[in-house]
Design a protein around this nucleic acid. Structure first.
Lengths: 143, 143
DNA sequence: TATTGTTATACTCTATAACTATA
DNA sequence: TATAGTTATAGAGTATAACAATA
């Protein structure tokens, strides 16, 4: 790799990072979320099956008492339910409700709408470029 | 616009938004920031000149008392200083210090490094695509 | 009288330490 | 003895209401 290419990578990385962070920030502030970020994140984890508070705390990188509180709030709002674990009396299963699935879908729809409004204003060529870029960015986000 | 194109826009928008938000989240969690997000944001605002707490509160969309507290913390950490406004005895000027400029530069360097590591692993073709995409995403973030 | 900044107070989310119940 | 979950308590960051100083 030449030094010119290395400088290009630094510039590209900086431009990409800044754009992604600015877009993310604006989506969070301007899409009219009805639930808090930490609540949304937990509901996403429960989308494809119940989890214990311990598992939720680990995957969300928060303490067990914090997750107790977060789950408590979601229960109060009717977005999840607590039930006994079938095999282990110490554990609890947290399950998303229909209302929880609804708020998840609504939040995503409103967030996507923010981006749709902007992508619609682009040229067809720009959308082709972004379609290729989206695959690469998705790969970056996952690696 | 055909219905097929509309569906493409929705899918593209969703993919782009998710990738941007995931990248943003990982940068924030994995780049080892030494200051809190709200502190970083305020320091950025002060980068090109002093501002009053009132102006900072407005641009950051927080209350005046919250900004009093945030500025107080930055003063305690040595990243900004408070001084009298030359023309208006009610107002205060908040100015970034050299240490504040340093922490800003360090934070950006570490955040960019996260992205450089990933962009380096891509093919030259993929980087060409992302170079075009970065311009479009920057436009989206600004509009 | 309006504006700037701060203080008083309260609510939320976070944490660590201690406690209860179960494995 | 170890683990899961909760409760007790405290530390940040946010807010609104009230206050002092200045325009």
């Amino acid at each position: 790799m030449t030094s010119r290419e290395a400088k290009g990578i630094r510039t590209l990385s900086e431009d990409l990072r800044l754009a992604c962070m600015r877009i993310s920030r604006r989506v969070r502030f301007e899409s009219g979320d009805v639930i808090a970020p930490h609540q949304f994140s937990v509901l996403c984890r429960l989308e494809h099956g119940p989890l214990t508070p311990r598992a939720l705390a680990d995957v969300e990188n928060v303490s067990a008492p914090s997750m107790t509180r977060t789950v408590g709030g979601l229960v109060d709002d009717g977005y999840v339910t607590r039930s006994e674990h079938p095999d282990d009396g110490r554990q609890v299963l947290v399950t998303i409700t229909d209302a929880g699935q609804d708020v998840l879908a609504t939040t995503r729809r409103r967030r996507d709408m923010w981006m749709v409004e902007r992508v619609t204003e682009l040229s067809a060529d720009e959308r082709v470029t972004l379609t290729e870029a989206a695959q690469i960015l998705t790969k970056i986000a996952a690696r």
